[in-house]
Amino acid sequence: MKIRINDKETEVSEGEKVIEVARRLGIGIPALCYAPGFKHRASCMVCVVKELTGGRMIPACSTPVAEGMDIQTESEEVKQLRAMSLELLLSDHRADCEAPCSTVCPYGLDIELMLGLYDTGRLEEAHALIAAAFALPVLGCEGCKVPCEKACRRASVDKAVPIRTVIGELAKKHEPPRVETKAKTKKETEEAILFQSRLGRFTESEKELLKDSVTTPSGCLHCACEGREGCKLRLYSAEAGIKRTRYEMSSASPAMTKLRVTDTIRFEPAKCIKCGLCVYNSNDGFTFSDRGFGMQVVLPAESAGNVGASLCEICPTGALYIGK
């Protein structure tokens, strides 16, 4: 059977999905809720394309080809819808891609990473990061207006992490590092930042929860997303040139809640886009609860054993990942 994609006729076989044909032809269609070889059902609508004969917008990931289809993947209308679906997902995505402290540091120090090392007792590595950023023994923090502490998420909960104090302590107490670490320059850091999802303000109950539950030595919430490297939502948002969502930000799930699924697997509901990949591909594991905007992906405690690490690979965002 034959269909047309972007004005080119092509031979397709029965049962193929539009996205498969397109990718075979080298036409990139972004898709979040789709993972080749896994069960999926259209949800995110980022893969939307226009079928010209019927004039309808269809999800490329799950629409099977049909004789005479005429698909358009790149028109302004399609791009606009794609961008809107991303923006809508982002408006329900209360999470920081990068920790604000790291993005504002004039020396390009990845403060959140450094604090992570500090909090887990890997002080030498933490020291190495600092050394690479500041050319020790001159500590960059001297005379710095510490925008990191002003930007700190913890500040909106109770008080900011004393970042300068931690850095000072590390620099003073420890031998110059033997570990070689090349810190990113500020420019490199900026380039690496694809797109910044924003957490927005904590609600009162979230503040209470965080106050009680976060007990790291530094007090750092570690708000940077651990799954950001493989996050497709971030990638596509950057590609679509989205700065931030135009819509009201709200979510039915509490921000900054990290659940331990197993020793290594972590689940953060607030970053979930409810695409259902983990639901459809686990047997009595993840499931949906409620409906509409309040719909959540949940994992009953009793079913945690039914979740495999492969799900972390297909999660399109940083909601499900292997923890550090």
Partner: peptide, 13 residues
């Protein structure tokens, strides 16, 4: 039902 983005989030917005 909450399945697709436009209906689930769009209508809420």
């Amino acid at each position: 039902c909450g399945k697709c983005t436009f209906c689930r989030v769009g209508i809420k917005r």
